[in-house]
Design a protein around this nucleic acid. Sequence first.
DNA 1: CGTTCCCTTGAGTAGTTTCAATACTTGTGG
DNA 2: CCACAAGTATTGAAACTACTCAAGGGAACG
Lengths: 258, 258
Amino acid sequence: MASNLQRELQRFPRTGRFLRGRLRSAMADQEMQVVEELIESEHKLAGGEPIARRGAECSSSTILVEGFAIRVIERRGHAHIVGLQVPGDFVDLPAFALKRLDHDILALGEAKIGRVSHARIRQVIDRQPHLARLLWFATLLDAAIHREWILKLEDLNAAQRVAHVFCEICRRLDMVGLGGPNGFSLPLTQAQLASMCGTTAVHMSRALRRLRDETGATFRHGKLQCPDPAALAQFCEFDPSYLYGPGELQLPGGDYED
Amino acid sequence: MASNLQRELQRFPRTGRFLRGRLRSAMADQEMQVVEELIESEHKLAGGEPIARRGAECSSSTILVEGFAIRVIERRGHAHIVGLQVPGDFVDLPAFALKRLDHDILALGEAKIGRVSHARIRQVIDRQPHLARLLWFATLLDAAIHREWILKLEDLNAAQRVAHVFCEICRRLDMVGLGGPNGFSLPLTQAQLASMCGTTAVHMSRALRRLRDETGATFRHGKLQCPDPAALAQFCEFDPSYLYGPGELQLPGGDYED
DNA sequence: CGTTCCCTTGAGTAGTTTCAATACTTGTGG
DNA sequence: CCACAAGTATTGAAACTACTCAAGGGAACG
């Protein structure tokens, strides 16, 4: 499994994580090749640099190769985080069909991205309907994650919400082969965590202390240490099925044709 | 404009509202025809009846012809509403690419739906790339609405949240030609409104009273009376651009090819 | 005409925000 | 290497918002 990942990353260094753990198993070798060749250029970004801007008419999209990105909506001068992307995510594929984005996408910490012109995506979509459906699927995953965030905000308290964020990122990193044994690096400040959880920085500090006391998970300086992931998951009643990884909602491997 | 709508509804009685006010202007006449012919059967549903079920392997999708639908996620026995659909919405198009849904879709009040087999959608997508992109666009609209709901839950208080729901539905109904002069019917209970706003039924009752006092908008027995939409919009700082209707984020009419 | 569901109101409690003060961390330049 | 500044994190106390529990009123349906 892990060696499979290594092999794929060697062949597809920029897109080897795309849909990994989800429908990558339904991709033909030729399709992986095509996706890899979509990337026209690679860039390194520093934390906070924009990947895509609200309202800009864009002619290219971006895949996140390394690092994280956040989706941000401005309101009354305050930036609100409404989404978080991990390596392998085709972060502004929506811009291809929407033409203009309703929000900003920013690098979170240092990141490496690949750019793809919309003209090339168009070609691929017109000629390879199966691959087109996979790209569509990728954007629908983001929508499913959005729905879970809505649920999280409707249903959980601050401590549970941040636990949910940790559980989700942990699972998503796992799926793309970046899961660590007991924690991972996530370069967010408490104020940013608060923004994602619909609370204040001060209250987030208290929520994190409660998490520490009750589950043993510590978040300091952008690093999560989580000795007992099961306790964390139980704390926020985390059910990962919305991520469409192996399990309940996924169809038997490769069976995407019907 | 209104007569244009009447004409289209006469020719396309089931799908004449699909993408209306958004990219319908970029649809060729032939494409509208194809979409209309996708519908294989029509059904009437009573309030609460399921349109699609979480986890079910589905071979057809649904377009909402009349009435409303809600997206629901169950948790600890409680149903949480994470989305609301209006006539013209292709409510479970995501099921086509996802194969199984992560949530339930239920009729809200009496509704009329049209069923489309996935096999037919597949045919259309494989043969008509432009139409495929429009269908993709439609699912991305839902994602944009989800993001706005996240923002709403992060940023607004209970009274503003419910005002936001009203503003959004008002605008969406307008776009599909169902806008009333000063209000509309929306068969929700206060408990359901509360669920969408991440609060309790009791608190929703108070929030609605506050809304009544401060904006003049009254919601009673599933009907919104809104003598001053501008006041309501200002109350929750509603910015409709995320709906991709005419305005900021929409490209000049019909200019979807590039 | 009564049952049921929905809405409203009150009072006490829990959770969250705000403001303010203090400490820790990191990077910069002396 | 230290001093300093800026950003980040923690804590306390008071104010506020929202939740829970409970009771009563109203509309709709059979």
